[in-house]
């Protein structure tokens, strides 16, 4: 369960103070499917980054699965990210010099899992995401849809409780985008909390719970 209390995040641009998040209170239960929508600069990406522990709020508390993670050290936060959170980005963010299999293997290496076990888990995941034939290809040799599949496979290989997707279909055409959405929704059906940040109304409306943001505030929250 994700529980945000009075979360505020302020950016400074010169003299100007921008409240990207202004006293946000939000509870997302385990297994929910949430979309966060809003115009550019509404704070939706910052909210996702705070939930994913990539960004630290200036004030407020954040409880993840009944544990206060607001003031954890950088190393502890990295551990929580590794174990509980999976990120999917608009730009995929695959490591260009590594093959698909090696990209998927990365979180396992960071977690210190022995090579023999890594190999088995990577093969299983490649199979599950229908990427077995592409295992030894580098990102440059993959299509956009395949790249995002590799990225999702990498985000989920450690079975995180929450999957955070920032414009996951932004760089894909409509058909491939739909495939990726179907993949994410399958993972949600398997029990993962799915939080999607998007501009795309069609994608946003598919979520069971839709949060609207504007100027750092939550302006809509519909089930």
């Amino acid at each position: 369960m994700i529980q945000l209390t009075a979360i505020t995040r302020i950016f400074h641009m010169g003299e100007q103070e921008i409240r990207a998040l202004d006293h946000i209170d939000l509870i997302i239960a385990s297994g929910e499917y949430v979309s966060i929508m809003g115009p550019s600069g509404s704070g939706k990406s910052t909210l996702l980054n705070v939930i994913g522990l990539l960004d630290k709020p200036d004030s407020g508390r954040y409880q993840l699965d009944d544990r206060d993670v607001t003031d954890l050290t950088e190393t502890e936060q990295a551990r929580v990210r590794r174990e509980k959170i999976g990120f999917v980005f608009q730009a995929f963010h695959l490591v260009p010099r590594l093959t698909a299999a090696e990209n998927i293997e990365l979180p396992l290496i960071l977690a210190g899992i022995p090579p023999a076990e890594r190999k088995i888990r990577v093969e299983e995941t490649l199979h599950a995401f229908d990427l077995s034939k592409r295992a030894q290809h580098r990102p440059a040799e993959l299509s956009g849809g395949q790249r995002q599949r590799v990225a999702i496979a990498r985000a989920t290989i450690l079975r995180p409780t929450a999957l955070l997707a920032d414009e996951p279909t932004g760089n894909l055409d409509h058909r491939t985008g739909s495939e990726v959405v179907a993949l994410l929704e399958n993972l949600h059906h398997a029990g993962t909390t799915l939080i999607v940040v998007t501009h795309d109304r069609e994608l946003g409306l598919r979520a069971h719970r839709r949060i609207g943001m504007r100027d750092g505030f939550i302006v809509a929250d519909e089930q």
């Binding site: 990295a78 590794r82 963010h93």
Partner: peptide, 16 residues
């Protein structure tokens, strides 16, 4: 930079 950011996002601490 991109790769470093990614490694951090998937759980690599600064020390790694």
């Amino acid at each position: 930079t991109d790769e470093i950011g990614l490694l951090k996002a998937i759980g690599a601490p600064g020390s790694d």
